[in-house]
Computed example of a mutant assay.
Amino acid sequence: MVKRTRFDDHSCAIARTADLLGDWWMPLVVRELLMGRKRFNEIQERLDINRSLLSSRLARLESEGIVERIRYQEHPPRDEFVMTDKGRALWDVLAVMGAYGEQWLFDEPPEFEFYDKRSGDRTEPIVIDRVTGQPLDVTTTRRRPSVDDVASQP
C-alpha cells in the first residue's frame, strides 16, 4: 500500500485544505452533514460507505473541530454529528466544487442541482472577494507572503 503524503503542517492553505478534503470520501461525508444528515446510519446508508471508513472520517472531522458529537440516546449509546461554524464554512468549498463539476465534468445535466430554498431558483456559485465583492479570477489574482510573514522578516 502506498503511504499517503500529509500536508496538514504545510505553509499553504490550499495544501492544508487538500489534506483535509483530499480523500475521496471526505467531501461526500461533509456534503451529507451539510445537507442535514446527522446520524451515522443515515450517512452510511446514503453513501454506501464501509462503517470503519465512515467512522474514521467522522473522527477526523471531530478532531479538526468541523463536527461536534452529541449523544442523543444512552442505551444503547447513539450519537449524532452536528456541524460547527468551521464545518458550515466548508459549504462554500463544496458549492464551488459542485459548480465546477456541473460545468466541466458532465456531458448532460447532472442528476441533482443546487437551488435557493426561498425562491426555488437554480444557483450558480462563484468565488468573490469579500472586500470588493468582485469575482475572483486566476488572471487577476496572485499569491504573496502574508503581511505577518513580511513583518517578521529582518
Score class of each variant (00 low, 15 high):
residue 24 W to F: 12
residue 24 W to P: 15
residue 24 W to V: 11
residue 24 W to M: 10
residue 25 W to F: 09
residue 26 M to R: 05
residue 27 P to A: 03
residue 27 P to W: 01
residue 28 L to W: 10
residue 30 V to S: 01
residue 32 E to A: 11
residue 33 L to H: 00
residue 33 L to F: 00
residue 34 L to K: 03
residue 34 L to Q: 03
residue 34 L to I: 04
residue 34 L to G: 06
residue 35 M to Y: 09
residue 36 G to W: 04
residue 36 G to V: 04
residue 37 R to C: 03
residue 37 R to T: 02
residue 38 K to G: 10
residue 39 R to K: 15
residue 39 R to F: 05
residue 39 R to Y: 07
residue 39 R to Q: 14
residue 39 R to M: 08
residue 43 I to G: 00
residue 43 I to W: 02
residue 45 E to N: 14
residue 46 R to Y: 02
residue 47 L to F: 00
residue 47 L to H: 01
residue 49 I to E: 01
residue 49 I to N: 00
residue 50 N to H: 13
residue 50 N to Q: 14
residue 50 N to T: 08
residue 50 N to I: 09
residue 51 R to N: 05
residue 51 R to T: 03
residue 51 R to D: 03
residue 53 L to M: 13
residue 53 L to V: 14
residue 53 L to F: 10
residue 54 L to N: 01
residue 54 L to K: 00
residue 55 S to C: 09
residue 57 R to I: 02
residue 57 R to V: 02
residue 59 A to R: 14
residue 60 R to Y: 07
residue 61 L to W: 00
residue 61 L to D: 01
residue 64 E to K: 13
residue 64 E to V: 09
residue 66 I to W: 01
residue 66 I to A: 02
residue 67 V to E: 01
residue 67 V to T: 04
residue 68 E to P: 03
residue 69 R to M: 09
residue 69 R to A: 09
residue 70 I to V: 15
residue 70 I to F: 05
residue 71 R to A: 14
residue 72 Y to W: 11
residue 73 Q to E: 15
residue 76 P to L: 03
residue 77 P to E: 15
residue 77 P to R: 11
residue 77 P to I: 15
residue 79 D to P: 01
residue 79 D to N: 12
residue 79 D to I: 05
residue 80 E to M: 10
residue 82 V to Q: 13
residue 83 M to S: 10
residue 84 T to I: 07
residue 84 T to E: 05
residue 87 G to Y: 01
residue 87 G to L: 02
residue 89 A to C: 05
residue 89 A to R: 13
residue 94 L to R: 06
residue 94 L to E: 06
residue 95 A to S: 15
residue 96 V to M: 11
residue 96 V to P: 06
residue 100 Y to Q: 08
residue 100 Y to S: 13
residue 101 G to N: 13
residue 101 G to H: 12
residue 102 E to G: 07
residue 102 E to H: 11
residue 102 E to L: 06
residue 103 Q to K: 15
residue 103 Q to T: 13
residue 104 W to F: 15
residue 105 L to Y: 08
residue 106 F to C: 12
residue 110 P to R: 06
residue 114 F to N: 11
residue 116 D to P: 04
residue 117 K to C: 07
residue 117 K to E: 15
residue 119 S to H: 07
residue 121 D to T: 10
residue 123 T to G: 05
residue 123 T to W: 06
residue 123 T to C: 13
residue 124 E to F: 12
residue 126 I to L: 08
residue 127 V to L: 15
residue 127 V to P: 06
residue 128 I to F: 06
residue 128 I to T: 13
residue 130 R to Q: 13
residue 130 R to T: 13
residue 132 T to V: 10
residue 133 G to N: 05
residue 133 G to D: 04
residue 134 Q to K: 15
